[in-house]
Design a protein around this nucleic acid. Structure first.
Lengths: 211, 211
DNA sequence: GCTTTGATGTAAAAGCCCTTAACATGAGTT
DNA sequence: AACTCATGTTAAGGGCTTTTACATCAAAGC
């Protein structure tokens, strides 16, 4: 209820339709997945006619892209918090980035689905791509900070390393890390799975087995 | 063109509608993604009326599930070929399983999308889940074969290991390994990315750095 | 204060898809 | 030859998408 303007009963103009539609879309995606999400449904949720959303979004896909873009912004913030400028130490902070990745997927399945599973062509929307790139940059920065721990001769390429970890975290989140009905059941949590994989991976790169 | 019966021109009955619909669905999913796929479109491709598919599939989702199930069967076969009973040696064969994983995702994006990105609830369809489980079992078997290389005291849990590798391969395939327009551009191929990650990971587990 | 104007809604309509129900066809069986 | 069942078709209801023409209202300028 922190809207700038509230929708008054019976008001001809909504006041915040754009934001209301994004919120409605999130809710619908959480319930029925990005495929089940419907433009008309979002309009209904916001209490406006089916044509009203077209004043704010070119089409259904544009709304989805906006949800995804907003998701990437929050995602970036969450990863940044996890990294915490490499505090208390690079190794711990790097693992916290991984935890933040899974925590986001679990806490915000609607954003995550819009970001990674909506089938949006990323090239079409430069802002969407830019937001995604900024989120990845956090991972890249964290990898840079971590490799700096190693002696100069033994440093792996940080870009490669961040791509490895991103893929791993995304794979775990996609396959097992969903809030609702995780796609498959497991003998361990997604978080434990990621932590153990990172432990092995980092050991393979020559990092000490935990500070 | 290896149909048992061919659809004759003007024939009232198609002769192979079920298979024709699955093929049409694959084609449509390849072109427009699992979301863009339409029951009516599949019917059109097969040259029948929009209601005809309902004689073979309960609804659109059931057709999608069948595509996914068939995909898992082929996927399992491809992984099994990659593993090749652990020949010439377990380490090489294990890496071949990873290559087969990405090769499948690249060669059969429609199957892969139906299997992993269609938003199908796996619980609903026991056959679908079973087919998926059999495919994963190949990875599990390969991991068993690989850990047997290590001395008895240093063997990691094979289940955990197979989950790690599955997640990694799936993450790479989802993010970068698409036939058409890989979601994002990379300084290296998906295959190189997986190979390098597996190398590091296996090194972390104590495997020798290549036979 | 009053008018103009642009943003933001609504209503109506065309087109497509999904799904069901009633009917048609034809291949195999008796 | 008649029956029967699987497999098609047509017709129809209902929903979603998107466009077009019209309605409402708030803010700016006179």
């Amino acid at each position: 209820m922190s809207w700038k303007k509230r929708a008054r009963d019976g008001a001809y103009h909504h006041g915040n339709l754009r934001e209301a539609l994004i919120q409605a879309a999130r809710e619908l995606i959480k319930e029925k997945g990005p495929a089940g999400f419907t433009f008309a449904d979002a309009a209904r949720s916001a209490g406006v006619s089916p044509a009203a959303p077209y004043r704010h979004f070119r089409d259904r896909e544009a709304l989805l892209a906006d949800v995804a873009r907003e998701g990437f912004v929050r995602f970036e913030a969450m990863l940044t918090t996890g990294w915490a400028n490499g505090k208390p130490d690079a190794l711990t902070a790097f693992n916290n980035v991984g935890r933040a990745y899974l925590a986001f997927a679990r806490a915000e399945p609607a954003y995550y689905a819009a970001m990674f599973e909506s089938g949006l062509p990323p090239d079409v929307n430069p802002e969407l791509r830019a937001a995604g790139d900024r989120a990845f940059a956090v991972l890249r920065t964290a990898a840079d900070g971590l490799v700096a721990m190693l002696p100069a001769g033994k440093r792996p390429p940080a870009l490669m390393m961040s791509l490895h970890v991103w893929s791993l975290a995304h794979g775990i989140a996609s396959l097992f890390g969903r809030g609702d009905a995780g796609r498959r059941s497991l003998p361990m949590s997604a978080e434990e799975l990621l932590e153990s994989a990172m432990l092995v991976y980092l050991q393979g790169l020559g990092f000490p087995a935990r500070a």
